[in-house]
Each structure stands twice: as structure tokens, then as C-alpha cells.
């Protein structure tokens, strides 16, 4: 539960990073990828994922293509040109934030 709160704050960066690595993905594939990469430690709920995806589309960070797969429509998400540029910024901002948290949690290591 606590971890989910942390995930929520960095969800857009996670989505953008996944798309940077995989090219295009659909919603369910993203939730599965996060579970697999984190060995089930992190779970993205649909209630958080779809608002984030829809917002990124509205902000022109992601674009969608639709295909018929297994008898149903599947929406694939891809980074736009603007989205590709934004991804690097988002990742470095998240990395800096995580480093700062690390300094607070482990001050001894940080001080050498």
C-alpha cells in the first residue's frame, strides 16, 4: 500500500521509460511488465494507469494506434517526438529525487 503511493508519484516516468525501452505497449502489457521487472513488488492499478495514459495522450506525450487483436480492439501507446524528449528529463528528475531520498535514509553511506 505504502509502496503504491510512491509508485503513483512516479507513474508517468515509469510509463515513459517502459515505452522508451519497448517502443509500443498496450495498457495490460504495462501492468504485467512492471510486475515482472519488480518481481511482483510493484503493482500498477488500472485506476492509476489509465488516467495517467489518457493524460499523457492529451498532453501530446503519447500517441495511440489501434489494432484488432484476438477479436477485440487493442490500443497501443507510443512516445511522440515531444514525449521522447521529455522522457530523458523525467528520468533524470526522478533519479535525482531518489538520490536525495537515499541521502536522507542512509546519511552514513552518503557521507562516506
Amino acid at each position: 500500500m505504502e509502496q503504491n503511493q510512491v509508485v503513483k508519484g512516479s507513474l508517468t516516468t515509469i510509463i515513459m521509460k517502459l515505452l522508451e525501452d519497448n517502443g509500443r505497449m498496450y495498457g495490460y502489457e504495462m501492468t504485467k511488465a512492471v510486475k515482472e521487472i519488480t518481481a511482483n513488488k510493484m503493482n500498477i492499478t488500472e485506476a492509476a494507469l489509465y488516467p495517467a495514459l489518457h493524460k499523457l495522450v492529451a498532453d501530446d506525450i503519447l500517441t495511440t494506434t489501434t489494432e484488432m487483436v484476438d477479436g477485440r480492439m487493442r490500443k497501443y501507446y507510443t512516445l511522440t517526438k515531444k514525449g521522447k524528449k521529455e522522457t530523458a528529463n523525467k528520468i533524470s528528475a526522478l533519479q535525482e529525487a531518489l538520490d536525495s531520498v537515499q541521502l536522507i535514509l542512509n546519511p552514513k553511506i552518503a557521507n562516506g
Partner: peptide, 16 residues
């Protein structure tokens, strides 16, 4: 939650 966000952000996209 999926429907609500689809409504809100489709509207936002159209406003843009």
C-alpha cells in the same frame, strides 16, 4: 475510473 479518465482527457485533448 477508466471511463471517467477517458471522458476528462478526451475533452482536454479536444480543447487543446
Amino acid at each position: 475510473s477508466i471511463k471517467a479518465s477517458l471522458d476528462v482527457f478526451t475533452r482536454k485533448r479536444y480543447k487543446n
